[in-house]
Amino acid sequence: MTRTFHKMHGLGNDFVIFDAREEPLAMDEPLARAVSDRKTGIGCDQLVVLEKSTVADLRMRIWNHDGIEVESCGNASRCVVALTHAKTIETGGGLVRGEEDGSDIEVSLGEPHFEWDQVPVTYAIPTNPMPMAWGELHNPVALSVGNPHVVFFVDNADSIDLDELGPRIEHDPVFPDRINVNVAEVHPDGIRLRTWERGAGITRACGTGASATAVAAILTKRVQSPVKVTMRGGSLTIAWAPGEPIRMRGSATYVFKGEIELEALA
């Protein structure tokens, strides 16, 4: 059966989006991995399936490049708002609210959580900072912004070997759901960020990573809200205050529309 898909990206973090609100689509780990493969499939960092929702305008489900379903994705949320004009999106990480403002999209990701069992961490341990180290990375802030993150503040983000440390931290048993790994430099004009995304590796941009990093920097009084977070693919503006939802503003780019025979990938 031929299925229509949309290819979009948020600052180079790219997505294949299937709208299954009218025609259901059965997605699983092997098929998500096959679609995401850049050599034999369509190719993307994350695959998104849109479904009907009883609590929001639509439901968004997300599979990482490795085929594992995850709770939320900030860049994908902005793309879905731009594509569908949805005001509310149900995700595994909570309700996302969206607003279009010219060429920019702003999404509200809900409040962050810092409790060890909500990040989650395997056992009771401080999360600000975590008394742990992996190589030259140590004492991160751990939090959930709909999905789990650790944020390391460093002097030079480019000097960190994320190809080696990223997967080691992601798969550490202390993180039962695995973890997204952020290394950030704080400058007078904002934050410079590199992210190892759980199940996807190093990407050009990570919306929830930018949000988690901004929250951690505001919480530890390194910056004030709103703050500009710059990644290899571009910049996002993140605003947050304790007790309030995180607000993320940035671009969402439509690339092309296509059709695929999913059975051919099986």
Score class of each variant (00 low, 15 high):
residue 37 D to I: 09
residue 5 F to K: 01
residue 13 N to P: 04
residue 52 K to S: 13
residue 10 G to P: 00
residue 23 E to T: 15
residue 48 V to W: 02
residue 62 I to R: 00
residue 4 T to P: 00
residue 81 V to L: 08
residue 25 L to N: 07
residue 14 D to Y: 04
residue 32 A to F: 11
residue 51 E to W: 03
residue 77 S to V: 08
residue 31 L to R: 12
residue 46 Q to Y: 08
residue 45 D to C: 04
residue 36 S to A: 15
residue 42 I to K: 04
residue 48 V to G: 02
residue 68 I to H: 13
residue 9 H to T: 00
residue 83 L to Y: 12
residue 67 G to S: 12
residue 81 V to G: 04
residue 74 G to K: 04
residue 76 A to T: 05
residue 48 V to S: 03
residue 63 W to S: 05
residue 76 A to G: 13
residue 83 L to T: 06
residue 73 C to K: 01
residue 33 R to C: 11
residue 51 E to L: 14
residue 32 A to H: 09
residue 77 S to L: 08
residue 81 V to E: 02
residue 43 G to Y: 07
residue 36 S to D: 06
residue 74 G to T: 06
residue 49 V to W: 02
residue 30 P to T: 13
residue 37 D to W: 08
residue 36 S to V: 04
residue 27 M to R: 06
residue 35 V to K: 02
residue 86 A to N: 07
residue 69 E to R: 15
residue 78 R to G: 07
residue 77 S to Q: 08
residue 15 F to W: 09
residue 32 A to G: 13
residue 49 V to Y: 00
residue 9 H to L: 03
residue 46 Q to E: 13
residue 45 D to K: 01
residue 25 L to C: 10
residue 14 D to H: 06
residue 26 A to R: 14
residue 77 S to Y: 06
residue 38 R to N: 09
residue 80 V to S: 02
residue 42 I to N: 05
residue 47 L to A: 07
residue 2 T to V: 11
residue 18 F to K: 03
residue 55 V to E: 14
residue 43 G to N: 09
residue 73 C to M: 09
residue 51 E to P: 00
residue 24 P to M: 13
residue 27 M to G: 07
residue 18 F to Y: 10
residue 9 H to F: 03
residue 75 N to M: 10
residue 43 G to V: 06
residue 73 C to A: 14
residue 10 G to Q: 01
residue 20 A to I: 08
residue 34 A to R: 14
residue 3 R to P: 01
residue 19 D to P: 06
residue 3 R to Y: 12
residue 69 E to Y: 07
residue 79 C to G: 07
residue 72 S to M: 15
residue 22 E to A: 14
residue 12 G to L: 06
residue 46 Q to V: 06
